[in-house]
Design a protein around this nucleic acid. Structure first.
Lengths: 214, 214
DNA sequence: TAATAATTTTACCGATTGGTAAAGATTGCA
DNA sequence: TGCAATCTTTACCAATCGGTAAAATTATTA
């Protein structure tokens, strides 16, 4: 522990700055090409430094990726954690959807980094998925089921509800290229976002059947 | 044209078999690692042949990928094409959802191949997205809007409706690892599929508000 | 300001990448 | 059966991959 303490000494100003630049560049590259498709040269290029210089701060490509994923997972589950068992069910779900949608808008690269990781078999996050994530979802699933039992919202499969919220919101980050191709580039990002938010609100609350018919 | 005709002569039995084996292997590898993350050696390995032998049938890595994407797009849009303007709106939408869900179940690698491509900026399918895909979606969006206008279903943004159908259904193929991690490996694929189908039916038709309340 | 620590550059390494040349083996057919 | 067309293997290539060694430079501090 003493020996380690010497290694864990305070970070230099330069170290601080360069690690940030590297992580920023790596997020850009990894989110675009996935782990195997990304190269250290690309990241170094995007960070505006030489490859050996980059490797002075992170000893391996894997180390950069690992840290990025770690930081990502820290924030990723927050919106779900915030879902309040004592709140108004429909309002809680609507809030959750909106928060997830905001994250897709504000952190699309993080979303794609995660999507790439899952899509390619999640070799580096499997334990988190089966541990932390699963526990949190189990917990919130119980809450949602209880809401249904109490007649505060429709009874439904809470797991698939959560999946469908993840899917619909993250879609706007992960499939951004497709969304833009279909809607046209000219529509502003904010307009798209507001339209999406309005639609998802409607879908998750009322569904699509003709109004007035029950 | 005459000169080309000579090249387009009938395929040998061996050629037929080997091209199939290669495409099958390539689908496996590309869908797992994306274009840049996949290597010819991996594909050749999976196809049980040497790299130069593989390159006898496909002259470049790109050519294999291109053909796979081409074949994929042929089938991918069929369910949407089949949506009948003269059918019962809600039933047509439910059918569309089910067909897409079946595709996610039966062709998960194709779904992931496409997802990888879009996620990584869609460099090889941009023209299809902005052309064929966009036109089809525009056409069906008009149909859905008309359904709303006639009071046969709720008025809603048809584009975001289509996005949300794509997102929710493809999620089960693209994020399979995550879905399994949360639901547990033990649940059979069929059970998962039926649960998902039932939930999506409920969501898209009735939404989540408590039944009886309008 | 001198010495020490931190940072950057230059030059490189072996392994792997996508792809080729050409000789050898196999196949189908007259 | 012979022979041309098809197929497969062996041996390679230049470029790029992730990563290292060590000298040269810059920043920090006693």
């Amino acid at each position: 522990m003493k020996a380690r303490a010497a290694k864990t000494r305070r970070k230099t100003r330069i170290q601080q700055e360069n690690e940030e630049r590297i992580l920023e560049a790596a997020l850009e590259v990894f989110s675009m090409h996935g782990f195997r498709g990304a190269t250290i040269d690309q990241i170094a290029d995007a960070a505006g430094m030489s490859k050996p210089n980059l490797l002075y701060y992170f000893r391996t490509k894997d180390a950069i990726h690992r840290l990025l994923i770690e930081q990502l997972l820290d924030n990723w589950l927050d919106p779900l954690r915030e879902m309040d068992p004592d709140g108004n069910p429909l309002q809680e779900i609507r809030n959750y959807i909106r928060r997830k949608l905001e994250m897709a808008r504000d952190f699309p690269r993080e979303s794609r980094l995660f999507a790439n990781e899952i899509l390619q078999g999640a070799p580096r996050v499997e334990d988190v998925l089966k541990g932390e994530l699963r526990e949190l979802v189990d917990e919130k699933a119980k809450v949602i089921r209880e809401w249904g039992r109490q007649g505060k919202m429709a009874k439904c499969d809470p797991y698939h509800l959560i999946f469908s919220i993840w899917a619909t919101t993250q879609h706007y980050a992960d499939f951004d290229v497709q969304v833009r191709a279909v809607l046209g580039e000219d529509m502003s990002g904010d307009g798209r976002f507001e339209d999406a938010a309005r639609f998802l609100d409607q879908l998750f609350v009322d569904g699509l059947k003709a109004p007035g018919k029950n």
